[in-house]
Every structure is written in structure tokens, then in C-alpha cells.
Design a protein around this nucleic acid. Sequence first.
DNA 1: TCTTTTCCGTTGGAAAAACAACAGACTTGT
DNA 2: ACAAGTCTGTTGTTTTTCCAACGGAAAAGA
Lengths: 221, 221
Amino acid sequence: MKKYVSLLKRTKLFSGVGDDDILSMLNCLNAIVREYNKGEYAFRQGEYIRNLMILAEGRLYIQKEDYWGNLNILNEIRPGEMFGEAYIVPNSGPLMNDVIAIEESVVLFFDMERILTVCSSACPFHTRLVKNIFYTISDKNKSLVQKLSYMSQRSTREKLLSYLSDEAKRQNSSSFSIHFNRQQLADFLSVDRSAMSNELCKLRDEGMLDFHKNEFTLHEL
Amino acid sequence: MKKYVSLLKRTKLFSGVGDDDILSMLNCLNAIVREYNKGEYAFRQGEYIRNLMILAEGRLYIQKEDYWGNLNILNEIRPGEMFGEAYIVPNSGPLMNDVIAIEESVVLFFDMERILTVCSSACPFHTRLVKNIFYTISDKNKSLVQKLSYMSQRSTREKLLSYLSDEAKRQNSSSFSIHFNRQQLADFLSVDRSAMSNELCKLRDEGMLDFHKNEFTLHEL
DNA sequence: TCTTTTCCGTTGGAAAAACAACAGACTTGT
DNA sequence: ACAAGTCTGTTGTTTTTCCAACGGAAAAGA
């Protein structure tokens, strides 16, 4: 367990907690290590989750199979990332997705009840932990709402405009750069790359914006 | 403040907390009441939020204006609903949306720092509160992820199939009813109603499902 | 009961996106 | 320096969605 302390220190969950405190907290939180082989399912649709997990090594897919058997990859989990945090609510129903290891993977399990039930004396950093988890989930919540606001636009053009508009706000400048390449941006917005590229150029020709590689500039009309 | 206790008792935030305890907690959490006139902005894009809010009376829109001035309504808040929970993270940046009262409204403000920093002696229900807020936000997170999984499907057909498939899972039966009418479902999935209606009938003709009003039955292939 | 309104399916034309395929610019690795 | 691979814009065709409009069925209201 000790070998994961340096990884955990860099996670959002344990941000601001010292090495020694992490070790004692691992104990307090009933931390368990589990390993998965490549291709093995960590969780299956229909199971109930009572833990918060952090991926220590490897790579996981969160995927979903519909009633007719069509597969769909929803998310990719990389080392240091937390998952399962949305399924710890009592009576929240069973897991709707599968979690599968696409590489040899190591997962840390934390007892959720122990996290939320504050043991005031034993763990001085417990309050910190509750805040961290709360902040992480809030952050995720916020970015989900934002993404949803792009995705709910009907056309590729509107999706682009709402996304770029938000980036300009976020970076507080009408000139900014994005960390996506074209294919990634298209995937993020769930549209076709070439159609999106085409639309970007139309927007440029109409004078609404300019771009060079990943540098964008929005223009007033 | 007393007049809102019965409302608060029914909110997710104060679920499981008795009347007397709510009153003392309101004090502990530095609760403030603010009223807004119809058309008045509660918050504007660019502001920083340090509170958690519950709408007591009236109705609010969470809306967004893009760089070129196009308006977009993201959400409608009704009495008893909580909002702002995603913006309380330190360094989370300014609010990206506007919050506007579309009716004469009353909003309760709670000091977020007070909620997360547990005062072990004074409030026996504090742990309960932290759990409640955590559960609420997790729940929201989960439904956002689900919705996003529908919305990220490219075609109306796929959006429908993934949504209906999930409902069947959730209600644990291939026959189930939904609480949306056609227009609401179309809005939820961000597609055109008539096109969606058309697609539903195609799916029925292809033998994948059946429906009568809001009752759906999925068929194996 | 009769009227009005809402809801839902249907259709045809217009608009947009998806798709496939390709070429040039740029990167990377050897 | 060269080859292989990636990234991006472009074009033409096919497919899908959007939009507007309509009619019938069901529900709500007078």
C-alpha cells in the first residue's frame, strides 16, 4: 500500500494531505487493493457499489451495452483518477455501466461510509478529505453541465460557437488556445470531424472568428 | 425564516432533519433570505459564488448568453430545488451563466464553508447535512452522465435506443412507462419532435419495440 | 354534450450532417 | 535527409434531420 502514497498525494482526493497522514488515513478508510487482468471486468451492469475507487495502475474503460447489444465507450480512466463517486448514494439503484480493465490494472477501494462519517478525533485531515471529495465532484458536475450545454445545441455550428464562446469567457480573452486537436474536439462535441472542420472554415469566411492551428480569435459582428 | 421550515424539510438537503433542528441549523449555516423581482438577475456571468442556494418561492432560469449575444435557457429552477452547488469550489473560476428570476422569487443563501467545516459539538445533524448534500450532488452527477450518454449518440434513432434501453434497465423490465410526453422527450434528447416521432414509428415497424402512449416494450431481435 | 385545446403521427421539401476519399502541410522517427 | 505517419482542409454524394403544415384522436373545459 505504501508504494501508492506518492500517487495518491497527487490525486484530487488527497490533495493537501501529507505522506504520513495519507498512510494513517488509508487505514482509517479501510483501503483495499485489487488487481485486474487485461480484459477482466471490475464491475458489471447491475451491481451495487459501496466504495469510492482510485485507479493506481493500468487503464479502465467505462462502457455500456444497450438492450440490443450495441457497445459504447463512455469514459477512459487513467491512473490517479477517481471513479464510482456517483454511485455511492443509498437507493441510487444498480450500476448502469460496465467497468473493464483494458490493461493489467490496480484499483484502490475506499469505504465511502467511513469517509462521510467523520471520526473527529482519529483523523485530523478528515474534514479536508470531505472537502476534497466534495470539490472534485462539484468540479466534475460543473464540467458535465457545461459539456451538456454544448451538446444540447442542434447544429455543429451552434455546438462550436457555444464551446468557443465559453472558452473565451473562461480564458478571459477573445484570443485563446484550446488543448484539443480537431479530431478530439469533434469527439468531444460528438460531431463528424470533416463536417466540423468545414463549419469552422465557414465561420472564418463569415468573419466571426479566426484560427491558426489551436489558436482561436473571436470577432465582434 | 420560520415560514420556510416546512419547505426545507422536504428538500434533499435537509432530508431526515427535524423541524427544531432545521431552525437551529439555519442559524449555524448563516442562512440569509433574499427576494428578487420579476426579471431581476440573481447572479450574472462573471460573478463568484460562495453560497449554496435553495429557491423558496417563485421561479428562476439559469441561462447563458454567448459571445455574439445568442440566449440559451439551460435550466428551470422550481421551489425546493438547490442550485449553485457546482460553483462553490475555490478557484473554480467565475460563474459562466446568468440566473434570472422570471417570477417574484425568494432565495435562501447558506454559507458553504459552514456546511463543510463540521462543528462537531453544536450541530448533531451536521454529518447528516454533509451526507445529504453529497448524495444530492452525486445523484445529479449520475443523471448528468446518463443524459450525456444519450446526447453523445449521433442520430435520433441511437439517442432513442440508448434512452429506452436505460429505462428498461432502470425499471428492470422490457415493458415500462416514461414520464415524458413526446415533446418533453424530444426536448430532453435535443431533437425535433416530429422527426423523433417518425423514428419511433420506424423502430416499431422494424419490430424493435412497441408503444402505446407512454408505455414502451422492447423486443429482442 | 359540444367546443377548444393539446398531443401525436404523417408527409414533403429544405437544410444540414455524415461519410468517404483525397491532397497538402506538418511531425516523427530512423 | 528521407520515409512514414498524422493532422487538417476540401469536395461531392448520401443520409438524416429540421421545419412547417396538416388531420385525427384524445383530453380538458364550458
